[in-house]
């Protein structure tokens, strides 16, 4: 956010401008109150509760770091955390596909481009519970996915139970997440590509650059901010993944319970609020570490591509 502008029509100064005070209080007090109520107070309480052995109704006293020790000593939680690796892998595939489709739809003259864009984007607007039903149906033995695979010649005996078989079920869930968010990422990338100066492509074509070179030297540097932000969001989102396991995986049945599902169950099924808060704290710290780490990494890496981008555009200018 940019710094506030001091406005000439509402000067500060010694005399209190009561009308100004009134408008600031009247317009600002509710949003700030709600921000405190639903973000900062829960945040402070989360830190506090994580050191107590407590439920929603009873507080059995201060236990120090015990709750945190349990998070790391029980293999159940560590395993749940490792599930996010599936979702991270899925996020990488998702962003690559989104980038591929966005480049094709932006660079080439495609008949029906509007249709393809809408078709791939629409899953993003589907209600989460509806996604749960749609994919339970989709993955049921002998139903949608199996029929399609049988139609291309794979016999049913060779197919796994997509949601029950623990060697594939997490991938099945990751796919539902990819299905929902790939089109959204694609739309964002199309927007970012559209903001690149089109004369760069002309210059590159005259330079003899092919599509692949244009992609590497014009598109990638041109959309790096949007791409980076989406990558950070997807990776940190993987850490707190819960939607597929919650709606499609029947609340994390058959070894699909992600760390967030564990937190949810700890608080709302077992009623151990203190323990759940410690787990949430661990999750939050992990997310912050990943976010900061990625930002540093990209600052380091992107510096390099910044230079290639500048070099390229200088060359283009020199050519004209």
């Amino acid at each position: 956010m940019s710094a506030p502008r001091s406005l000439s029509y509402a000067p500060g100064g010694r005399r209190v401008n009561w009308q100004k005070v009134a408008v600031i209080v009247a317009f600002g007090v509710v949003p700030v109150f709600l921000l405190l109520l639903f973000t900062y107070i829960p945040f402070a309480k989360m830190i506090q509760f994580s050191f107590y052995n407590m439920s929603y109704t009873k507080n059995k006293g201060f236990v120090g770091w015990d709750n945190y020790v349990k998070v790391f000593s029980k293999s159940e939680y560590v395993d749940a955390m490792l599930l996010s690796l599936y979702y991270m892998a899925g996020a990488v595939v998702q962003l690559s596909l989104a980038l591929f489709f966005a480049s094709v739809l932006s660079l080439e003259k495609i008949r029906g481009a509007g249709f393809f864009k809408s078709a791939m984007f629409f899953p993003f607007l589907v209600n989460g519970i509806a996604i749960g039903y749609i994919f339970k149906y989709f993955y049921t033995r002998g139903f949608v996915l199996d029929s399609v695979l049988q139609a291309i010649g794979i016999p049913l005996e060779n197919l796994p139970y997509w949601l029950r078989d623990q060697s594939v079920n997490n991938w099945s869930l990751v796919f539902t997440s990819l299905w929902k968010y790939c089109g959204q990422n694609m739309v964002l990338f199309i927007g970012a590509i559209a903001s690149i100066d089109p004369t760069l492509y002309e210059a590159a074509t005259i330079d003899g650059a092919n599509r692949w070179q244009q992609f590497c030297h014009i598109i990638l540097p041109g959309i790096k901010t949007v791409f980076m932000l989406n990558l950070i969001l997807s990776i940190t989102g993987s850490l707190s993944a819960f939607e597929p396991a919650y709606v499609v995986g029947s609340m994390g049945a058959n070894g699909t319970a992600t760390f967030f599902i564990k937190i949810h169950q700890m608080a709302h099924v077992s009623g151990k609020v203190g323990q759940a808060c410690a787990m949430a704290m661990v999750l939050m710290v992990l997310i912050l570490i990943f976010t900061a780490g990625q930002r540093l990494f990209f600052r380091f890496v992107m510096k390099d591509s910044d230079n290639t981008f500048n070099a390229k555009s200088n060359k283009a200018k020199a050519l004209w």
Binding site: T39, F43, M46, S240, I263, H268, T291
Partner: peptide
């Protein structure tokens, strides 16, 4: 700063409030 705090982590204490 609120955008940096993952809301999902705080659902337990939000429920309490």
């Amino acid at each position: 700063i609120a955008t940096l705090i993952p809301g999902i982590a705080m659902q337990v204490t939000t429920y309490q409030i």
